[in-house]
């Protein structure tokens, strides 16, 4: 009986010791130079499987064409896993929507208006953060692009660019959006189905999938191919958003 009591007393300590050891091991792994197989960043599985290599790569640049929601969906998983994210030069980034998609606002820093210091600000933030979103003010010069790319590779930071970017790993875009829950003067925007297309640099055929972005419970998930017909709105053809 006594030995059982001792064992009972002992187990939480042993557990915490082993937990601590595991924690330290993880730390050591983090501190060691990044190995090839650790150079990927967790992201939403439905989007990840379209990306070249099946994941977001550390140190790579991705360009997203016309959807802030898509960027938020990409950021959510790394942010929830503890990565810091930085937003440079995007003053209209919707904070409330970002929180809704699961981005941790405690680990989000914004430089809304870097002005002509755009490149310096992006580079400084990329030095310390896991993932950075930026919008170049105009076409960035080739030399600055390659300097930034080298720095990203060295630091293992993933950069998501709004708009075009030379040598981006892949280009993501959103098409054929169908909104659910809104009618002709009634209801409200509740859910959206859209097609995400990824065009990779390596010249493979563009891959696309149909996603709920988001669904009625504000989650991003893959939608079955034979989707139910939306309540009211069905739009076909490519998205033609006016950039106000």
């Amino acid at each position: 009986m006594a030995s059982a009591a001792v064992a009972l007393d002992d187990s939480p300590i042993r557990e915490s010791v082993s937990e601590r050891a595991r924690e330290l091991q993880e730390r050591i792994l983090q501190l060691q130079a990044a190995r090839p197989d650790t150079r990927s960043l967790p992201t939403h599985p439905a989007i990840a499987k379209l990306l070249p290599g099946g994941a977001l790569r550390r140190g790579a640049v991705y360009s997203v064409q016309n959807s802030t929601t898509l960027i938020m969906a990409l950021l959510a998983a790394p942010s929830a896993a503890g990565a810091w994210s930085g937003i440079v030069g995007v003053p209209e980034f919707g904070i409330e929507a970002a929180r809704g998609f699961g981005i941790d606002l405690d680990r989000l820093a914004l430089v809304p208006r870097p002005g002509d210091q755009w490149l310096a600000a992006t580079a400084a933030i990329a030095d310390v953060m896991g993932i950075v979103v930026t919008r170049p003010p105009q076409r960035a010069s080739d030399s600055s692009v390659s300097r930034l790319a080298a720095r990203l590779r060295q630091r293992g930071t993933t950069l998501i660019v709004i708009g075009a970017w030379p040598h981006s790993e892949a280009m993501l875009s959103l098409e054929r959006a169908d909104w659910h829950g809104i009618g002709d003067g009634h209801g409200h925007l509740a859910a959206r189905q859209a097609t995400v297309t990824v065009t990779s640099r390596t010249g493979q055929r563009p891959r696309s999938t149909r996603l709920w972005l988001p669904d009625a419970s504000l989650q991003v998930r893959e939608s079955p191919q034979q989707s139910p017909t939306p309540l009211r709105v069905t739009t076909q053809g490519s998205l033609r958003a006016l950039h106000y």
Binding site: R99, L105, L110, A124
Partner: peptide, 16 residues
């Protein structure tokens, strides 16, 4: 460091 470059209020955090 970025703040000393761009100004104190140029780097922000947000809360809802």
């Amino acid at each position: 460091r970025l703040q000393s470059m761009l100004g104190h209020s140029a780097v922000v955090t947000a809360a809802v």
